[in-house]
Simulated scan of single mutants.
Amino acid sequence: MLLHEKIKAIRNFKGIKQKPIADALNMTVQSYSYKERGKRSITTNELELIAKQLEVPISIFFEDNFNVKFNEIVPKQAI
């Protein structure tokens, strides 16, 4: 799964709309949507803000065995 796909999956799983994330990034929903669809790159600073908005550690985006439900329910320390 690619970075932008993981971001979208987590956002959808948590029931968060694009607008609060776009607001935190100081951009329009349309601009954020391009990033979430992989049409525009995501900077490190943007990824940090996205992780904060989604209330997840930034490392979750780089896990090879990414599973939205598994990562949400089971804390990393319990694995």
Results as ranks from 00 to 15, higher is better:
residue 23 D to F: 02
residue 6 K to Q: 07
residue 15 G to R: 03
residue 79 I to W: 14
residue 63 E to V: 14
residue 79 I to H: 11
residue 31 S to P: 04
residue 69 K to S: 08
residue 34 Y to V: 01
residue 17 K to L: 15
residue 34 Y to G: 04
residue 69 K to H: 09
residue 1 M to P: 12
residue 43 T to R: 11
residue 19 K to F: 07
residue 10 I to W: 05
residue 33 S to E: 06
residue 3 L to Q: 11
residue 68 V to G: 10
residue 31 S to D: 14
residue 35 K to A: 03
residue 71 N to Y: 14
residue 77 Q to D: 15
residue 23 D to G: 00
residue 73 I to V: 15
residue 38 G to P: 02
residue 61 F to H: 07
residue 62 F to H: 03
residue 20 P to G: 08
residue 60 I to S: 05
residue 69 K to T: 13
residue 63 E to H: 08
residue 74 V to N: 15
residue 24 A to Q: 09
residue 78 A to T: 06
residue 8 K to A: 09
residue 65 N to R: 09
residue 3 L to F: 04
residue 26 N to F: 02
residue 72 E to Q: 12
residue 35 K to H: 06
residue 44 T to M: 04
residue 44 T to I: 07
residue 23 D to R: 06
residue 78 A to L: 11
residue 51 A to E: 05
residue 44 T to K: 08
residue 27 M to K: 06
residue 44 T to Y: 10
residue 38 G to C: 04
residue 61 F to P: 08
residue 75 P to R: 08
residue 59 S to A: 14
residue 15 G to E: 02
residue 54 L to M: 10
residue 37 R to T: 06
residue 57 P to K: 11
residue 41 S to D: 11
residue 1 M to T: 12
residue 70 F to G: 01
residue 29 V to E: 06
residue 36 E to K: 09
residue 69 K to I: 14
residue 14 K to L: 10
residue 51 A to K: 08
residue 54 L to K: 12
residue 35 K to N: 06
residue 67 N to M: 04
residue 28 T to I: 07
residue 26 N to W: 00
residue 37 R to V: 00
residue 47 L to P: 05
residue 68 V to I: 15
residue 25 L to M: 09
residue 67 N to A: 04
residue 39 K to H: 09
residue 2 L to Y: 13
residue 20 P to S: 03
residue 7 I to W: 07
residue 39 K to L: 14
residue 16 I to D: 08
